[in-house]
Design a protein around this nucleic acid. Structure first.
Length: 275
DNA sequence: AACAAGACCTGCATGC
DNA sequence: TGCATGCAGGTCTTGT
């Protein structure tokens, strides 16, 4: 499910349910996620008050009292759902939070590429999960020069550089393809040689596509993304992702959208429009 | 140092 | 119907 817009959509869904509320009880049903769920996590969370519900890159940051943060990553298939009544656990429900006075918040991840961790809030920026992350693309500090300087060190193609969370945080396969299409840049183009004008265009299009996707509630591809059970609609606005063989929405080329494999993952682009 | 490939795990669509 | 194959929104490790 989740790149930055989907994680942000989840954050917005959880915030009104969690912020200012007390965690009454926690059930951990499976500990072998991407890395093991910390020992005694349930005991450490019980009775804690949620102060903030934030996000950094694709990580959800549930800020608790006493200076600790519950970190959740959704991996490829992670989701949250909210239940007004005590839920009957379903397959792949790994963590169930009971909020004092209801509701219940359930973390489910079939592929178990996600993770749950509890870290000291002060150490967050130095924590290994976060230390190397690039800038938040929606932060004002992210602009053409910032992107250009990060890309300058690179030798490989743009696609891989943008997927690397050290370049800019929060992009994944969908939004890299979409950003490159909007910026009219080939995913095969060497990242290092990107000029000032092209880098500025790319940074602007990254910001725009992410902002529009958040506005639409994210993209719901194989399942729904939102804690409230609703779906996002941005998949309807995708220009190239998953559209191999379809006409290019930006030009009149005969070939249409092409699919290639880079770094073992699908890239969708228009070879005529994107140079 | 930077890159690609492989690994992690499950579910689903497709084709025989 | 059953079975094999390939693919999926991420990221960590390994090898070149």
């Amino acid at each position: 499910m989740p790149e930055l817009p989907e994680v942000e959509t989840v954050r917005r869904g959880l915030e009104p349910v969690l912020q200012g509320r007390t965690i009454a009880g926690v059930l951990i049903r499976r500990r072998d996620l991407r890395r093991p769920v910390p020992e005694l996590l349930a005991e450490r969370l019980a009775g804690r008050v949620v102060e903030t519900v934030g996000r950094r890159a694709k990580y959800l940051l549930i800020g608790l009292d006493r200076g600790e943060t519950l970190v959740v990553h959704l991996g490829m298939s992670g989701r949250f759902r909210i239940s007004a009544t005590r839920p009957e656990p379903e397959r792949h429900d790994h963590m169930i939070l009971e909020i004092a006075g209801g509701p219940w918040v359930i973390y489910n991840d079939s592929r178990r590429f996600g993770l749950v961790d509890l870290v000291t809030s002060q150490d967050l920026s130095r924590h290994p999960d976060f230390a190397g992350l690039g800038p938040e693309p929606l932060d004002p500090a992210f602009d053409g020069p910032a992107l250009q300087s990060r890309l300058a060190l690179r030798r490989g193609p743009l696609k891989g550089a943008l997927l690397d969370q050290r370049t800019v945080a929060g992009l994944g396969n969908i939004y890299v393809c979409e950003s490159l299409f909007r910026a009219r840049l080939s995913p095969l183009r060497p990242a290092g040689g990107l000029g000032r004008e092209a880098a500025g265009r790319l940074a602007r299009n990254i910001r725009e596509v992410l902002a529009e996707a958040i506005e639409a509630g994210g993209s719901s591809l194989r399942d729904h993304a939102r804690p409230d059970g609703g779906i996002g609609y941005f998949q309807l606005s995708l220009a190239v992702y998953g559209r191999e063989g379809e006409p290019c929405p930006g030009c009149t080329c005969r070939e249409g959208i092409r699919r290639i494999v880079q770094g073992g993952r699908s890239t969708f682009y228009c070879a005529r429009r994107q140079r």
